[in-house]
Design a protein around this nucleic acid. Sequence first.
RNA 1: GGGCUCGUAGCUCAGUUGGCUAGAGCGCGCCCCUGAUAAGGGCGAGGUCGUUGGUUCGAAUCCAACCGGGCCCA
Length: 991
Amino acid sequence: MNEKKKNYKDTLNLPNTDFDMRAGLLKKEPAMQARWSEQNLYGQIRDARAGSPRFILHDGPPYANGNIHMGTALNKILKDIVVRCKNMTGFDAPYVPGWDCHGLPIEYRVQSELGDKLVKMSHIDVRRLCAEYADKYVKIQSEQFQRLGVLGEFDAPYITMTPRYESAVLEVFARMVEQGLVFRQLKPVHWSIENRTALAEAELEYHDREDDSIYVLLAGADSSALKNLFGLNDDTPTYLMIWTTTPWTLPANLAVAVHPDFEYSAVKFTHAGKEVIAVIASDLVEKVCGVGGVEKFEVLATARGAALVDAGITYLHPLIGEKVCPVVPANYVTLEDGTGLVHTAPGHGMEDYGTGLKFDLGVYCPVREDGTFDETAPDWLIGKSVWEANPLVVDFLSTAGTLFHKQVITHSYPHDWRSKTPTIFRATKQWFVAVDGDMKRGTTLREMAMDACRKSADDNGMDFIPDWGRNRLAGMLESRPDWCISRQRSWGLPIPAFYNEAGEVLLTPASVRAVAKSFAERGSDCWFTDSPTELLGDYDPVFDTDLAEPKNFDASELHTGHDIFDVWFESGSSWFAVAVRRELVDEIPVDLYLEGSDQHRGWFQLSLLPALGAAGLPPFRTVLTHGFVVTEDGHKMSKSLGNTIDVIDQLSKRGADIIRLWVASQNYQDDVRCSENLIAQSEDAYRKIRNTLRFCMGSCSNFDPARHTAESSEHSLDRWMRLELHQLIRDVRIAYDKYEFHRATRLMYEFCTVQASSVYMAAVKDRLYCELPDSPRRRATQAVLHEMLSVLVKLLAPILPHTAEEAWEHIPARDPNEPENVHLAMMPEYDEEMLEMAEDLRPVNPDLAQFSSDEIQVGPSWIWDRLLDLRADGLVKLEALRNAGVKNPLDAEAVFTIADDNQAAETFLETYLGELEDLLGVGYARIEKASSTGISPVSETLPVGVRVEDTREKYSRCARSWKRRPDVGSDAEYPDLSARDAEVMKVLAKK
RNA sequence: GGGCUCGUAGCUCAGUUGGCUAGAGCGCGCCCCUGAUAAGGGCGAGGUCGUUGGUUCGAAUCCAACCGGGCCCA
């Protein structure tokens, strides 16, 4: 028995392929990547697409600091999928990866590692260490990106700290200077008195500190205005009451801010033996009087903050009696502390500064670098340090009788991380890009930007995916202040400004370009080593028409400025430094920027502004954004919470194609959830896809479409499969074109699972295995599987580049006209005519019209849908039969019942009976006629019923096909076989 | 606190202009096969569509408020 079985097994055409079932990605991927780089696959693609329309995805540079994380991987993989799709759709789509190298995080890291040694080091030493640090991480990240399967110009990436990049940034800057967009103005920064330097947020440490907190009465400048507002008829002196914990900033007071929506009260009480009326936020009256020890007070009247502003209330400066200052509105005013009226010194606070700009108060800062007051301060403060000033100011107010209350409070206060001394806010001269200033070209940056936000890409504007990006970017542009582009650091691109002895600035388009030339030749380090004469090279101020007094700027008497650019200005110039300078495009815009949604404020906006300023056009046509990687339950990942998932770890455990499949399956428009579980799910999906490909390959092992042309018969499952396959091509390509990768992935995966694996491959096994190798029925199926294989491999290539390439190499008798490497191939085209005809509702077989009393018109799609209905119904019944003991469907027969007078249905069933047998996987299928009441039709439009029956007693089992059917034993030569199998054996025996 | 945004089964996703008992695949449970075998197949159970109101003959779909998550600010 076993002997015989074995014999027949040897007569079957079982799948045969070298394509491994187990992927072994961890070994294969690195080898393949090494080969890509050896054979310069990227270059081959460039050559193959040379002359095709360009598609430029311009890479946003990640920061060269640390290993990549899941978010970086998500971004890079999405970009890689885009680029691969475009290259396979007939575009010439180069990809130049880049890195952002300058900036505080690296400088800070290097400084921290240096510790005390830092003090002895020069700018140039620190910069050298920073450059080494950045360089190290560029290399690390480059390897990590390539390990993810990202293909691009990794031999020649763009690096923002290289001379050619730096000089390009200066060219962008020069053009903006040309447009009149660059100016210098005071702005408060965190200032370390000890080290005489500006500090960044990261360099601050917050420690508790004791300070005098004071409540101050500010006399109304025009007491009738206040009294009118509150409707008072009273001669009592009237004041505004403010609160501050930094008395030394009072000399710089320029305004009082109130919240327009809050209610303010005029409160009468006795202070220092005199009756006074003070304005305080209504909700704080009791509290303030309480701390001031006022037991009896009377609220005379109230008014909204907006009313105080509208009434034009003014007051006398607390220290400089004759100076009159305004009341202004501000939404940041709170009722937490103080009086609800906020002392505003634009030279000493960020919010105050914003308010100062908004209401044109000016920026006044009487404090010098060393923390002492300059000669613009009141006499009694000049030369005193701010710390000495505190008690002096308190005394002054006390003497003047305007100190309502003083108490010592302990609060968290910023300190310089290095010297541990308290810092102050101090206005310093900074460089700005004007957002509202008129350019030479006639508008303002803000107007241009808002205009670009309103228009589509075809109209010199921009497109957004998802489209709410437009709104978001516009919202930020609408309210953004002037762009402060200067920083007081070492690790960055120097702002090429020179100063003469008088403190006048030399910075013109020509002078900037002269420095750009030096930077291009010697790198920006030369700013710190070369003299202004050397830096300016051929530049001669005499010929610079932008200078009113050229003779004031003799190079030999200049010195260099200490400011560097905001790193955003550098990365924001990449459209020029990379896309234009490398001639990826003739001119901007490039096609696509693709980054996380945080870049609306960052790179998108800060590339748009320089591009509009310097070139007058947006840098990109389309902005595509993705969400952030979050945990399985939708929360933010953070190292401190320990809920992160490490991409390098996953990469070394599962391989790049698994991570890529996970990325591709996510709808990136929203936040993207990630966990070990979720990636494991992608791993399962990967196996299914891989095995589907493997079955195709195994089944085509002795098939060559060039030699074995086999037309499928009109009513075969092959036709259905091909229809499904071409629908898949159409739908996946549409999804790719719309960057809807999760849609493409789901379509392909479900196709593999349902149509290919569960329906078709299961049904078609019998004809593949049992028929003669060269039978037309088998060849027709092989032809479809072969087509399916090459279609799937190409469609999958952008997402699973490693697996696709491996599979491509294993395709038996691959079309010799196709390229050697799948990544050089073009996406498959779909048969439009076939799809249209299938979906057309017209009778393929005129008899079918009789199915329904409504004379429904049917086409192939309709027919196959009905056949699959029959399958579904039959499978449920098979399941019931299984529970009744028939474990194997081959031990059952399907009986299709029709009304005995329905000739059309009978013809129909006869046509498809063989396919139905295979679709159900039963041993045999037959038709049974009954009275029309005796059948329970599967659907209204198909009056056919299905039944399944146990045939274990009824028929013998064919020892070769394992089917139980009536014709088993019909051939005397092979009594244990069905007619078909006996026939096959006879032919085989002759060979 | 503000701007933008998301919220359909355990998971990933479908659900056209509001309209039949809300779908698919995975996962899970049960079962089958052992001629895709560290594979393959079948059946089944899972959702008051974030919540609450409203508009409507009718809402996952429109409106409002709220709750929760995310990004960017403050």
